[in-house]
Design a protein around this nucleic acid. Sequence first.
DNA 1: TTATGAGATATTGCATACAATTCTTGCCGG
DNA 2: CCGGCAAGAATTGTATGCAATATCTCATAA
Lengths: 233, 233
Amino acid sequence: MPKGKPPAPSKSDAVYRVLKRAILDQALTAGAKLPEDAIGEKLGVSRTIVRQALARLNGEGLIELRPHKGACVAQPTLEDGRNIFTVRRSLETLVVEGLAGRLTPQQLHLLEAHVEAEDKARTEQPAASIQLAGEFHVLLARLSGNDILLRYVTELVSRSSLILSLYGRPHSPDCAVSEHRELIAALARGDSETACGLMHHHIEAIAARALLTKNPDREFHDLLAAYAKEEGL
Amino acid sequence: MPKGKPPAPSKSDAVYRVLKRAILDQALTAGAKLPEDAIGEKLGVSRTIVRQALARLNGEGLIELRPHKGACVAQPTLEDGRNIFTVRRSLETLVVEGLAGRLTPQQLHLLEAHVEAEDKARTEQPAASIQLAGEFHVLLARLSGNDILLRYVTELVSRSSLILSLYGRPHSPDCAVSEHRELIAALARGDSETACGLMHHHIEAIAARALLTKNPDREFHDLLAAYAKEEGL
DNA sequence: TTATGAGATATTGCATACAATTCTTGCCGG
DNA sequence: CCGGCAAGAATTGTATGCAATATCTCATAA
């Protein structure tokens, strides 16, 4: 029986997951300060643990870690946003390219069930909708069987949520469920060409929705922020 | 003068760089144990610092971090190797796609100077040759101006070194300098199509050289290792 | 009123001490 | 001679304390 061991539910991991979820749910909005002490006290662990979690989140680009100034939820610039979606487009196209025509019936069922859940959430609980949409892309990457690819896609999807919260229209569903359905259909019939094209445009559509710059001042703000960062301010 | 501040020469970073270099230079061969205490003593820092560096290296896939059992240099499986090169091919093609025809004369000169250094090192100090070949790819990614892309390519190039050391023919130059030259030429004349094709095949060639399985037993070994890992052994 | 600067406060950087777990060694029984 | 077991050693996981740095407060002077 392939049981392995319960993967050592380390405290650091727990804190990491809590913070990540809080960020993705926008309970912690972009730019929010993340003092080690306060977090540790709230969660009942020492600063050591919190520090590890923060370091990991920093590595994944979800928070920024300025020396002697503490951590805060990352505020990706518009350029970061564009870059993230550029890489996402490339990698997720690679995912579907490897998946077309190679999905087992079980895997197809998994995907369809997920999309159905998305559809249901879309009307019943719009909050979870965003999360589910992201998880669809992660699920696709997982099915590719390529762990490295999975890791990068997961990271990029997470960061996309930040982008959306900063520049997207509030509460806009970031993925159209219909596009997910079309994609699954193309994958099922092994039409790699169409599937890649669909994913390509799907990501473009997400990027378009996410990079709306709901606030015109934001561009200016980012421009300044970029210069400020170069000067270490 | 855009000076910024001296980027806070944190001790953790220093240890991280030392260990990373040691791994990439194969001073620490794959599978080598990395006891926190010993490293800390050697480098004159506390375990706290070493731990941070190890966590970061773990995040980048250069070491493995087994709970309560310590860290060791990662031993990527052949499948990991294939996955890494698959993603590299996709991302580095994206790099040249964005670079074709957009390189300034200064940037072109930088690339040519680098290749020249590679060529010189190829005969004079074959050890540095491998490192320089990797840095060429990182340099290209940097010129793309896409920070996310740069981060991923850097990571993948590093991990490729590990793959090469495990499965490649010893001391084989992992990049043909001539291929780098052709690529630069295509980029200079803005021939995106050709440049992408060249990069595509270049990565394929690297993968072929890196995944030779110089030792036939290795496949078997990896197979066992994969199963063992599932059982938590 | 505004700008400046010194002191106070808060937060991070780092090292050390202790607890928990795993690995080693040597003994004992079969 | 071999296998199992228990005590000890070694190594990692976590918490805490001190030092260094940044931030804030507020008084003082132009």
